[in-house]
Simulated scan of single mutants.
Amino acid sequence: MTVSQQDLLDPAYLASLKDFQLMSRVAVDGFMAGIHHSHSHGAGMEFLQYRNYSQGEDLKYLDWKVLAKSDKLYTKVYQEETNMNCYFVLDTSASMHYQGSRSACSKLHYACIVAACIAQLASRQGDNVGLFAYSDELHESVETGGRLGQVDRILQAMIRLRPSGEAQHESMLRSFLHHFKTRGTVIYISDMLEGEDVLPKLLRNFRINKSDCLAIQILDSDELDLPQNRVTRYLDSEVEGEVTTYPETARADYEERMGTFLERLKKGLAQSQVDFLQLVSTDSVGVSLAKYFDHRGRTRSC
């Protein structure tokens, strides 16, 4: 059976691949298939991507063919000049266990797919990668490194993750700061529920040493539109509370509250200079890879 490039990035297809190493390679291969790649610069200098030309840069890296065709200035970026540390910080609290009827996997599994694919891509780009996963305690920690098998160590750690406990963002993220020694990029992945006030302030701390942070919010479709059409009992998986209601009567108020929450979250992250990407667990993983690729390119051009 032939699998299209679009299918290679579909979460339903990727979730069916139980081997995380295979899954991440398949997704990244599908994503990279659409990106121009060249190996013509010489020994040890692999062409990776384009970025906007900045005044004062060496003109020998300017792509004159692109300039002639588009009248735009782009510089070629090579692996030797782009190595950096990439830290994955993953929320594994109980709320990440949720999986609605329209999703092929839970929010945590989808988050792991996204993190695995970005880690695979980052490693191919020559970056050092590491993992920090928490809820009310630290569950997995893999120090950053670029040695052989580093991505596999991260993927094996993700396989062991199980959603549990209440997210203790403040204590755990402040603890993680002690591991954050050198300049790099933090990829923070969480549903961020009820974190609109605390998370922007905490993630701003990762802006030290001119480092960057990309916050990826993972939601299930059900959390956006309450699709149930009969009396439903809703459980709070973290504090064990529950509410029984008819969704049709609560939907308008719920959507208004959800909209307010998302707006405050986005505003807070923007004020903290943290890039933000919202994903629903049915979205193509290519969206997250493209966002990371764009974020990385802009980071390198600063």
Rank of each mutant, 00 (worst) to 15 (best):
D71L: 13
S135G: 08
A33Y: 09
S237Y: 05
Q273F: 06
F88A: 06
Q273E: 09
R162I: 12
Q6E: 14
R207W: 05
E223P: 05
V231G: 00
D197F: 02
Q271Y: 06
H139Q: 15
G100V: 01
S211A: 11
F88Q: 02
Q55K: 12
E248M: 15
R300H: 13
L73Y: 11
M84I: 04
L226S: 06
H139K: 15
Q120L: 02
E196F: 02
G149A: 05
Y292I: 11
E223S: 04
G44H: 08
I35T: 15
L173A: 09
S301D: 10
P247I: 06
N52E: 13
S123G: 08
S171N: 12
S284K: 08
V231K: 10
G184Y: 01
C117T: 05
Y292R: 04
A12E: 11
S237V: 04
S288L: 10
Q228G: 00
K267W: 01
G268E: 03
F180N: 03
S106H: 04
V77Q: 09
S237F: 03
T182L: 14
Q55N: 12
V129M: 03
H109A: 13
V239M: 04
L121I: 06
D253F: 04
T182H: 14
L203F: 07
V114L: 11
L224R: 15
K107C: 05
G259T: 02
E81Y: 08
H139C: 11
L277Q: 11
F20C: 07
N83D: 11
V287C: 06
R102V: 12
F206N: 03
Q278Y: 00
E256S: 14
V243N: 00
F276E: 06
A43W: 08
D58N: 07
Q150V: 07
E170V: 01
D212R: 14
E57V: 06
A27C: 10
Y110K: 02
S54W: 03
Y98K: 09
Q271N: 07
L224W: 10
N85F: 10
V243I: 09
Y110L: 01
R296D: 03
E263H: 08
S40Y: 01
T82A: 15
V186D: 02
Q228R: 01
H41N: 11
P247F: 04
Q120R: 08
D19I: 12
G145I: 03
V142S: 07
D71H: 13
F20A: 07
W64P: 05
K267Y: 02
G241K: 02
A270Y: 01
R147L: 14
L22I: 13
D127H: 07
R25C: 11
L265E: 03
Y53F: 12
Q49R: 15
V280I: 12
K210R: 14
L155T: 04
N229R: 15
